[in-house]
Design a protein around this nucleic acid. Structure first.
Length: 589
RNA sequence: GGCCCUGUAGCUCAAUUGGUUAGAGUACCGGACUGUCGAUCCGGUGGUUGCGGGUUCGAGUCCCGUCGGGGUCGCCA
């Protein structure tokens, strides 16, 4: 080893020992007669000093050191004078009096300094990820990520799960997300697809008798990115045989409680709360509500119907909905201009307007208050539970739009009004998702989750009469408003599978073509099974309190899915294309 | 694909209503300094204002296009 200790290790009890440290120059303070350098590695920082009288040659070399040089130093650990102790450093009680210095690597002037308080723009950070990775925030995220995956593996191991790998080169399935394709050299004109998830393979593992499976699996989806979405991401993939929905939920409840306790010191009571899809959609307008705060949605349909405000009454007449929420003590905080901003904000979600009422002692104050009688004003105040000083927002539109607009508004207001502790966690299950939804454009039923999702046992008959009402045995885990996990009980009964395929307009031939190898697997004795997949990146992001997934991935991609570090994706040699029988047909510009 | 934000020195930012030679801090280079820990002090180098057009006597600033980065809607079974 080139070092005896790390830069985060030395304490008072090491005083008098001769040690060797290696690290990066984090800071240098040159006083001519004495030079101080903060030496940094992933464990911390240690101040090393070079005295002129100790060794003038070494001291001269030390004066030439610059940011991010990599050095190896040997010397005695000495106690700092009492008034020179640095409480900001874990090693602040001591320093290293350097006797020998070896510059292992002289650094070019870095584009930015990992120790700087000004964070450079993300483009630069991604391009120079090597430097960025030295920042404590990124180091802590990747360390947390490691600890989390370790805890996850240990937890599942304790519960009898086997970690089994599934293929990366797989078969393209036209449904779902766009696939990343990999051309086959051996099979002319044929392509592999990278897995969107190991879904089918884990079901086949169940059929293969491995009744408890888990994998930390890389997944690939060629879709547009978001702050919480990368083209390649990692799932904690889980599948269990001979289970019902509750068994899966209990296993994951245990995992969440175990991990949050060990990682964040938070005690979760299990089982985690469970809500139906219908319930959360009505109360929060979202299938992934952030329940760290209240501010529930209220139905104002009956009042809206009777009131003199045409926008409201007509919306109800045409089958739409009028719903509202209360921003507590926000009447004074939000100026007209800010409310206009909020109106534009809900407009993004399709709302044509945003009605608002300031609540005062006598009733409602608003440009549209005159359309509401005193009785109606009191009814609104009572319905939403508003107090003087509150601000009521309403959206009148088709149900889906009121949900989208108000849930987005709710999340925004909750944050702006600081209605919750950003360090807290709210975890809950959303159950009983609809099995199908009707695609109006394509005029056909589409699976809400995927085509192998088992319908709710009470709703099997509805498959024939009213498919839109059929609930699925599917479940999402929601943490702080993010979809943190998603899963379902799968169909293992070929008759029901056939019924679902019929509804989805997938005939036998097509089913064989698309999912033949799964159906084949299910044919020879399939155990009842179900599972779940947890988004690892999002989970780490939440535990670190970060708001984007790139900060918990060592080498992430940009919104346009390029890697600024390596330059991927890139053009390839003509020769490589020829070998793969690929001809480019690029749009002319 | 749509909408919004953004691009000025290596980095973080400034630049009045379109008006002189585009500034500051930091980094970098040189000098001073023996207890600093955002060291301090003195001096210096550093700019095709992302790129391409246009309007104007005059553009970092206005307009059009384009490229990169970010947010978001659609999309993500």
């Amino acid at each position: 080893m080139l070092r005896t200790h790390t830069c985060g290790e030395l304490r008072k009890e090491h005083v008098g020992q001769q040690v060797t440290l290696c690290g990066w120059v984090d800071k240098y303070r040159d006083h001519a007669g004495i030079v101080f350098i903060d030496l940094r590695d992933r464990y911390g920082k240690t101040q090393i000093k070079f005295n002129l009288e100790d060794n003038s040659d070494i001291q001269k070399d030390a004066r030439g050191l610059r940011y991010e040089d990599v050095v190896q130093v040997t010397g005695d650990v000495v106690a700092r004078p009492d008034d020179m102790i640095n409480p900001k450093l874990s090693t602040g009680a001591v320093e290293l009096r350097v006797a020998t210095l070896k510059v292992q690597s002289k650094a070019a002037t870095p584009p930015f300094l990992p120790g700087s308080s000004d964070l450079p723009n993300e483009e630069l950070r991604l391009k120079h990820r090597v430097v960025d990775l030295r920042r404590p925030e990124l180091q802590n995220a990747l360390i947390a990520r490691h600890r989390l995956t370790k805890l996850v593996r240990d937890y599942f191991d304790r519960h009898g799960f086997l970690d089994i790998e599934t293929p990366i080169l797989g078969k393209s399935s036209p449904e779902g997300a766009r696939d990343y394709l990999v051309p086959s050299r051996v099979h002319e004109g044929c392509f592999y697809a990278l897995p969107q998830s190991p879904q089918i393979f884990k079901q086949l593992l169940m059929c293969g008798g491995f009744d408890r499976y888990m994998q930390i699996a890389r997944c690939f989806r060629d879709e547009d990115l978001r702050a919480d979405r990368q083209p390649e991401f990692t799932q904690i993939d889980v599948e269990m045989a001979f289970v019902e929905q509750n068994d899966v939920l209990e296993v994951i409840d245990g995992l969440i409680a175990d991990v949050l306790q060990k990682m964040n010191g938070i005690e979760m009571t299990t089982p985690l709360p469970r809500f139906s899809y219908a319930d959360v959609m009505e109360r929060f307008g979202s299938d992934k509500p952030d329940m760290r705060f209240g501010m529930e949605l209220n139905d104002l349909g009956d009042i809206a119907k009777e009131c003199g405000f045409g926008v409201f009454s007509k919306t109800i007449e045409s089958g739409g909905r009028v719903r509202g929420l209360v921003a507590p003590q926000a009447a004074e905080k939000y100026t007209r201009k800010m409310i206009d901003e909020l109106t534009a904000f809900v407009g993004v979600h399709g709302a044509k307007g945003l009605a608002f009422f300031r609540v005062n002692e006598s009733g409602l104050d608003s440009p549209i208050a005159k359309f509401f009688s005193d009785d109606h004003q009191q009814a609104i105040i009572e319905r939403v539970g508003a107090k003087p000083g509150d601000l009521i927002f309403c959206v009148a539109d088709k149900e889906a739009i009121t949900s989208a607009a108000l849930s987005a508004l709710r999340n925004r207001l909750g944050k702006e009004l600081e209605l919750y502790d950003p360090k807290s966690f709210s975890c809950l299950w959303v159950l009983d998702f609809p099995l199908l939804h009707f695609d109006a454009d394509e005029k056909r039923w589409v699976a809400e989750h995927h085509p192998f999702c088992y319908p709710h046992p009470d709703d099997i008959e509805l498959l024939k009469t009213d498919p839109g009402k059929v609930r699925a045995q599917s479940y999402d885990l929601v943490i702080n408003g993010y979809e943190a996990a998603s899963g379902s009980i799968r169909i293992h009964d070929s008759k029901i599978q056939q019924q679902v395929f019929d509804l989805l307009n997938i005939d036998e031939e097509e089913a064989e073509l698309r999912f033949g190898f799964l159906l084949e697997g299910l044919r020879y004795g399939a155990p009842p099974h179900g599972g779940v997949a947890l988004g690892l990146d999002r989970w780490v992001m939440l535990m670190c309190g970060y708001d984007n997934i790139r900060d918990v991935i060592a080498f992430p991609k940009t919104q346009k899915a390029s890697d600024l570090l390596s330059g991927a994706p890139s053009e390839v040699d003509e020769k490589q294309l020829k070998e793969l029988h690929i001809q480019l047909d690029l749009p002319n510009e």
